[in-house]
């Protein structure tokens, strides 16, 4: 992924996203963002385990990461939306995430209309050749005033 955004913009966005209480609670970190594309990570944490027998993370925690990365991808789209909210999100789970490994979500806002943004996102653990989960979502889009 090419990152065309100036480092200070990434730093600002990182502070903003990492200040979201739930993102901070789950230890999410913004790795890169720009042109409708975002990479975010979430470290493995025993508190977020869904199956105690295997130590695999709960799908809900992975969903939260993918939702956050998707919303951020909408916000950094070149059309510069002022606000966004999730309309729907469909998550497909491919395999259990390997216990102990960091989860990486790569989101892309691939199409926008005047009022809706469409996003796809994948989640991988440290083996990025086999995704753990993927999701597609539709997001609301608020435009800056005066822009039609």
């Amino acid at each position: 992924m090419t990152d065309v955004t100036a480092p200070d913009v990434v730093a600002l966005a990182r502070r903003f996203i990492e200040a979201i209480p739930h993102s901070r609670a789950l230890g999410m970190r913004l790795e890169s963002l720009g042109e409708g594309r975002v990479v975010m990570t979430m470290p493995y944490d025993l508190r977020f385990v869904g199956d105690p027998a295997t130590g695999v993370l709960h799908g809900g925690a992975v969903s939260a990461l993918m939702d956050t990365a998707s919303g951020a991808a909408v916000m950094c789209h070149p059309t510069a939306p002022t606000a966004t909210a999730t309309l729907d999100l469909r998550i497909d789970y491919f395999r259990p995430a390997t216990p102990g490994q960091t989860i990486t979500a790569r989101a892309e806002c691939y199409h926008v209309t005047r009022s809706v943004a469409f996003v796809r996102v994948t989640a991988t653990d440290e083996d990025d050749t086999r995704p753990v989960a993927a999701a597609t979502g539709a997001f609301t889009l608020d435009r800056p005033k005066g822009v039609k």
Binding site: A19, I20, P21, H22, S23, L26, H58, G59, G60, A61, S63, A64, L65, M66, D67, T68, G71, A85, T86, L89, I91
Partner: peptide
């Protein structure tokens, strides 16, 4: 998830 509204995080709702 949104401190200015404030609103629940969409990921929390999903989970």
């Amino acid at each position: 998830g949104n401190p200015t509204l404030p609103a629940l995080h969409g990921g929390v709702t999903a989970a």
